[in-house]
Design a protein around this nucleic acid. Structure first.
Length: 499
RNA sequence: GGCGCUAUCGUCUAGGGGUUAGGACGUGAGAUUCUCAAUCUCAAAACCCGGGUUCGAUUCCCGGUAGCGCUACCA
């Protein structure tokens, strides 16, 4: 129906509609993994694109050949896929687009907005070091900008290597209205003549972003606040190239608990590590979105994609940095785990359990899952919470745990012996077991805890476990009796427990 | 050092010239219970500092301080 009505729009209106259509990109550099900060930037771009029914482009910024690797490219793609951030165009690689950058740089030289610089990296570094030593600001200061174009061309033709630098105006300032940060103005005296093309002909980031963002008709540049000081360098290029400016939106950074920028020191650096721990991508998205962005109703925290997309807007993004809160992430994850249909959870748990070396059938996993669903925060917790379901032989445990009230060895033994009789002849169904064992406890004059704790410990090897009767039912009579016999032996061997 | 951004409970945040400064995570206590978890109830917990504007500032303005970012032929 949308198209039907679209046809009837006047042509001019259609053109305007097209021009307004949102195009955003996530442009990671494959010199590292997709980390939490990058993931959130990608998420914000994705939410913004989806909210506006726009286009989300993935672009790999691999102009630093030395540090970019194919492995990282794949890691980033996997991370995006796992997070569920699907892109509409790309992945485009900047390394495939070198002609565009060379041509763009040539245009800037041609129009007098850029010039050749014959200084070597080494001499610049020396000068910088000297400046710092003398307490002067370490700014780029060379005289190549004064070299007449003809002379520069001659020297290049003679084989002299040169970088291309942008000629930043000496006076004035560049200002823009940032969609997140508000108005920002930076004086040109603070912006040095940055390199566009390295002396080997490779473009720098400053050039390739602008050339690509123009070429891809990017309408909104949503990226980390660490790019704020780069923005004047880019706006200057747009202006020199006569291109229309995109909207800039700089989102604050994510910090570690020590309030420094999130890094390897803070644990998981790649989002893939979170997958491996058993975080759910939908929970991770929800958590990440709320790190810096607040929906109109700030009391609503658990939100699915559809709702986040519906409510997302750049002006509701905070301007201050946020600390990554691991505990809250786990709470989100636990909420999503509890809300998930048990069978679905079971399917997601199975590979985790199998990867740990247990051979478990799907049907068995489906019976275990409901017992642990509200007891795990991440999928991997299944290995510590439910391991006793998957092993034939329980790992060794302290016999003293079998005795609920310290020292009352006889009572524990009595409870276990009687339980064994009951369990040998009761149907293995949790309600029947519940009834029978409670009755037996009453006969023996024991409180429920006195009766059930020894059984729980005998059967699970621990004092904290899922509900006892359901657990017994799932484990089955054979295993349960075997474990109770072993526990009784253990108690027998320990005639004198410490009081 | 320079430039830029920021500043509400431990953390994520809401709010806004007069409020008991709200919510969530986490923490503590209690209820429930066969343990744990979940659930429910309650509690402790914040407006960085100093000036100004104002009858009144946590809110607006200025300064300070602190944190973060940038300061490359990295991105």
């Amino acid at each position: 129906m949308l198209f039907g009505s679209l046809w009837r729009w006047p042509a001019a209106a259609r053109v305007r509609f097209e021009r307004m259509s949102v195009r955003v990109r996530f442009a990671p550099s494959p010199t590292g993994y997709l980390h939490v900060g990058g993931a959130r930037t990608a998420l914000f771009n994705w939410l913004f694109a989806r909210h506006h029914s726009g286009t989300f482009i993935l672009r790999i910024e691999d102009t630093d050949f030395e540090r970019s690797t194919q492995e990282m490219v794949e890691g980033i793609l996997h991370g995006m896929l796992w997070l569920g951030l699907d892109w509409d165009e790309g992945p485009l690689h900047q390394s495939d687009r070198m002609e565009l950058y060379a041509a763009t740089a040539a245009r800037l030289v041609e129009s007098g907005h850029a010039y050749y610089c014959f200084c070597t990296k080494e001499s610049l570094e020396q000068r910088r070091a000297a400046a710092v030593a003398e307490g002067r600001p370490p700014r780029h200061e060379c005289t190549c900008r004064q070299i007449p174009r003809e002379e520069a061309e001659r020297r290049r033709a003679a084989g002299e290597a040169a970088a291309v630098r942008f000629a930043v105006p000496e006076t004035g300032a560049t200002a823009w209205d940032d969609a997140v940060m508000g108005c920002i103005e930076i004086a040109h005296t603070e912006v040095e003549d940055f390199v566009l093309l390295r002396s080997d002909g490779a473009p720098t980031y400053h050039l390739s972003v602008v050339a690509d963002d123009i070429d891809m008709r990017i309408t909104h540049v949503i990226r980390g606040a660490d790019h704020i000081s780069n923005t004047p360098k880019q706006i200057l290029q747009y202006q020199a190239l006569g291109a229309e400016l995109p909207v800039f939106a700089h989102v604050p950074l994510i910090l570690g608990p020590d309030r420094t920028r999130l890094s390897k020191r803070h644990g998981a650096t790649s989002v893939i590590a979170y997958r491996d721990e058993g975080l759910l991508p939908e929970a991770f998205r929800n958590f990440l979105a709320l790190l810096g962005w607040t929906p109109p109703d700030s009391s609503k925290e658990i939100m699915g994609d559809a709702e986040m997309i519906r409510l997302f807007s750049l002006d509701a993004i905070a301007r201050s940095n946020a600390v990554f809160d691991r505990a809250k992430l786990e709470w989100f994850n636990a909420e999503y785990i509890r809300a998930m249909p048990a069978d679905e959870l079971s399917e997601r748990l199975l590979p985790v359990v199998r990867a740990a070396g247990y051979s478990v059938e799907p049907s068995y996993m489906r019976r275990v899952t409901p017992l642990i669903q509200e007891r795990i925060k991440v999928l991997r917790d299944v290995l510590t919470v439910a391991d006793f379901f998957f092993v034939k032989q329980l790992p060794p445990f302290d016999a003293a745990q079998l005795v609920p009230q310290k020292g009352d060895l006889a009572m524990a033994r009595k409870a276990l012996e009687r339980s064994r009789e009951v369990l040998a002849q009761t149907a293995f169904e949790h309600q029947a077991l519940d009834q029978a064992l409670r009755a037996a406890a009453q006969e023996l004059g024991l409180k429920p805890g006195q009766m059930f704790t020894p059984i729980r410990v005998a059967v699970t090897g621990r004092t904290a476990a899922p509900p006892l009767f359901e657990t017994l039912e799932v484990l089955g009579r054979e295993t349960v009796l075997e474990r109770i016999d072993q526990a009784l032996q253990k108690l027998g061997a320990t005639q004198s427990l410490p009081a």
